[in-house]
Design a binder for these strands. Structure first.
Length: 382
DNA sequence: TCTGGGGTCCTAGGACCC
DNA sequence: TCTGGGGTCCTAGGACCC
């Protein structure tokens, strides 16, 4: 059996646990500092009851609840809490998988009373962090994840062979992990509305209409999939940053400065994780171009913002749109491996020593102590 | 004036090698 | 020089999740 632990309104609950004034109040955690130009990252259950949910614009949320409490997201708090919960779960001694910042899966095998373990975990989390979790138990990850949503918040639910069809009949297919907007349209056209409708289709039928995705659903709903939990936190496969401008811009200097800033932010995160990257991705979005993305893989790996910036500029020059307006952009690095080589050339050694010193100064005296001058200019242009 | 930011996985076609 | 098959890596884009 797999036990899926899903934290309830994770970011919002942490803020309420830290700040008693926010307890019991409708609260949203926004993705940016500004309470007006942001979207809801997480909503407390008090806010959810008023119809506020993740992904909604903050303005819409405030119109539903003028007295709404607002806190900008502070990732470091949530990452720290997530890692502490992971350690707590490790002590149970089962293979453990880190599924996302607020979801964990334990392979508890065929222990006799899985609900007892679930209850114990819930109580330990409540005791240590003053927040609640919902837990689903089933034969594989997809069904256990579905189960975790059945009795939210602070609930426990188990899907067995006996209640499988009853549970599936009550859940709209859109709620199943892996069914997004596009898949839902396909399924609606086929007359498939509930998870039970999906369950009753043949593998061949699902393959015809959904390809590999359909076969995966077929196997997962029957718990015949053979995906084993890996007993460790996965290493990241990509690291990126993106930014959306208040208005679209055509100013080349502005755009290049932002690429520089995003490249430096990505490089800093790579160094923090002791990783170097071979592949650089550039993503652009604008009213005329829609989504544009291009990537290039290089022979050498790097964690240097200056080099990532130059590579991104090359991608832009080679295949980027010519002069259209840019509304949002992102720089992402992939092809990540652990940093484990000695720099060969003097120039390279000097740059790495410089970058290391800058990181040390910024760590000791605050993030904004020393940085490329272009970033000052960029920030003024926001 | 509606539109954030961080990711993962899959696919299909092309380049290139043996 | 052409044909065939197998395999890997790279690229661009889509779908989805929190």
């Amino acid at each position: 059996m797999i036990l899926h632990v899903d934290m309830d309104a994770f970011f919002a609950s942490i803020e309420q646990a830290i700040n008693p004034r926010l307890k019991g109040k409708p609260l949203i955690v926004g993705s940016r500092q500004s309470r007006f130009h942001t979207v809801v990252c997480a909503a407390s259950y008090e806010a959810k009851r008023l119809g506020i949910g993740s992904g909604m614009s903050s303005q819409e949320a405030f119109s539903l609840c003028p007295g709404l409490e607002f806190v900008p997201a502070d990732q470091s708090k949530y990452i720290w809490t997530s890692e502490e919960i992971f350690k707590l779960l490790q002590d149970y001694g089962f293979p453990l998988n880190y599924a996302s910042i607020d979801e964990f899966q334990l392979d508890i095998g065929d222990v006799p009373e899985p609900q007892k373990i679930a209850l114990d975990i819930q109580q330990a989390i409540q005791r240590n962090f003053n927040i609640t979790a919902s837990i689903g138990i089933a034969k594989n990850w997809l069904l256990s994840k579905l189960a975790s949503k059945l009795n939210k918040p602070n609930g426990i639910a188990m899907i067995t062979d006996d209640n499988l069809e009853t549970v599936l009949a009550a859940v709209p297919v859109r709620k199943l992990c892996g069914v997004g907007a596009s898949t839902e349209v396909v399924l609606q056209c086929l007359g498939i509305k509930t998870c039970l409708d999906l369950y009753r289709q043949s593998g061949q039928f699902l393959h015809e209409h959904l390809g590999q995705h359909g076969l995966d659903f077929y196997a997962s709903l029957r718990a015949t999939d053979k995906i084993e939990l890996q007993d460790q936190a996965e290493k990241p496969k990509s690291v990126g940053h993106s930014y959306t401008f208040p208005r679209a811009s055509q100013n080349t200097g502005f755009i290049h400065a932002w690429i520089r800033l995003l490249s430096e932010m990505v490089a800093l995160r790579l160094r923090e994780k002791n990783l170097v990257a071979r592949t650089v991705h550039l993503w652009l979005n604008g009213p005329q171009i829609g989504n544009f993305s291009a990537q290039k893989t290089y022979a050498e790996s790097t964690d240097d913002g200056q080099i990532i910036y130059q590579k991104t500029l090359k991608i832009l020059a080679r295949s980027g749109p010519k002069t259209p307006k840019i509304r949002a952009m992102g720089v992402t690095c992939s092809g990540l491996v652990e940093q484990a080589y000695q720099p060969l050339f003097l120039e390279q050694k000097r740059r790495e020593a410089l970058v290391k010193s800058l990181d040390q100064i910024n760590t000791r005296f605050g993030e904004d102590t020393i940085y490329p001058a272009v970033i000052t200019l960029t920030r003024k242009l926001i």
